[in-house]
């Protein structure tokens, strides 16, 4: 089973590399931040797989800490660093802007 876990961990690491493209491209700060959040989730999965593959149960605690603390960075981001340049007045407008930004 060890080779299966390692192969899955490698695949997840490749998806993390793909996520770096979004960090580089953006375009908004929220895109970059969410990519980093996604990395946190991927890291939890990789660490759990490695814990099995390497028979090292201590790595599960590392995954636990990552899962628990992932929210803090994004809370700091929303509370301190991020505020839309121009606050959309209504929800539809906000959605329209989101769609426009993604295009």
């Amino acid at each position: 089973m060890s080779s299966l876990y390692l192969a899955l961990a490698l695949f997840l690491l490749l998806t993390l590399v793909a996520g770096l493209w979004r960090v580089g491209r953006g375009p908004t700060a929220a895109d970059r931040m969410l990519a980093a959040q996604l990395f946190g989730t991927t890291a939890v999965a990789i660490l759990l797989l490695l814990a099995e593959a390497m028979d090292s149960p201590g790595l599960r605690d590392v995954a636990l800490v990552f899962a628990l603390l992932a929210a803090i960075t994004v809370v700091a981001f929303t509370r301190r660093a991020w505020q839309p340049e121009r606050l959309p007045t209504s929800e539809p407008e906000r959605l329209a802007e989101r769609a426009g930004g993604a295009a």
Binding site: G26, P27, A29
Partner: peptide
């Protein structure tokens, strides 16, 4: 595409 890169972020 207009330069919208990180305009909403300081620094």
């Amino acid at each position: 595409m207009p330069d919208t890169r990180s305009t909403s972020v300081p620094g």
